[in-house]
Write a protein that binds this DNA or RNA. Structure first.
Length: 255
DNA sequence: GAATATGTTTAAAT
DNA sequence: CATTTAAACATATT
């Protein structure tokens, strides 16, 4: 789950609901991906106040008072849920003073909490200027969608939004990155910002204060249920990097 | 019951 | 050696 827009909304919702609260207890149910022992995590974070939750790429960063940070990557199937009922497949359970809390769950046990994550210097998709983006594509022989999803080049874009962005930009996902003309790179850069920001707004509006999973109702292209794009073109599907890619003939192929 | 879905790491193949 | 591709992870849904 969880690409950049979902995580951005999670970070805002979590900040709204839990920032300023004291973390009384954190239960570590799955510790195999944690970079420190459960005991260390507990002693490090418990009885600390959560100051803010930020997003960086596809990770969340829980900031606690005293410069303590817990990074969290939800990977494929990780979720954040409220504690109205006992969570299924819990990884971490946060209990705040006053009784409220939330849990990180993952049936696949791949969600990765990291205490004091090292800084990541790769540009976030929403913090990427045009020139940097141009340089990223320059001379590259890889397929554009692969490059967009490469977290070592740009952080935050996954399989679903990759398709949505390329559809919006009118560029075929199979285009060779280095062969895309300047004008179209500009458009693609705009589309990245537009698609992600629009998605954030929609998800935020839809979710309100609830911690709910990804919202994909507004996907224009990336869905196995859709047959037709908004522009009336038939939606085609193929594989890029082992993942299903949805696109239309109206998207220009550069190679 | 087989195929599919999701991101990342690691191993294997080109 | 660089780059690309596939497998693995565990389970729910189609």
């Amino acid at each position: 789950m969880a690409e950049l827009p979902d995580l951005e909304v999670f970070s805002r919702t979590l900040s709204r609901r839990f920032a300023g609260k004291l973390l009384e207890k954190v239960e570590v149910k799955v510790s195999n991906k944690l970079n420190v022992t459960a005991a260390r995590l507990k002693s490090y974070l418990e009885t600390r106040k959560l100051t803010i939750v930020k997003r960086s790429g596809k990770t969340l960063q829980f900031h606690f008072e005293g410069e303590r940070v817990l990074g969290l990557h939800l990977m494929l199937r990780g979720e954040l849920v409220s504690l109205d009922k006992p969570p299924k497949y819990p990884v971490l359970i946060f209990h705040f003073k006053g009784g409220e809390g939330f849990a990180v769950t993952d049936m696949q046990k791949q969600a990765t909490p990291t205490l004091d994550p090292p800084p990541n210097l790769v540009n976030d998709a929403l913090d990427l200027d045009l020139n940097t983006f141009k340089k990223l594509l320059d001379g590259k022989k890889t397929v554009i969608k692969t490059l967009l999803m490469d977290q070592k080049k740009v952080r935050g874009i996954g399989n679903s939004y990759g398709d949505e962005i390329l559809y919006h930009a009118g560029i075929s996902p199979f285009s060779i990155a280095g062969k895309i003309p300047e004008e179209h790179i500009k458009q693609l850069h705009k589309s990245i910002q537009h698609v992600l920001k629009t998605a954030i707004k929609k998800i935020e509006k839809e979710n309100g204060d609830e911690l709910v999973g990804e919202l994909r109702d507004f996907m224009l292209i990336h869905s196995s249920k859709l047959k037709q794009a908004p522009n009336g073109k038939e939606i085609l599907s193929g594989k890029i990097g082992g993942r299903t890619t949805y696109y239309t003939q109206s998207q220009e192929l550069f190679h």
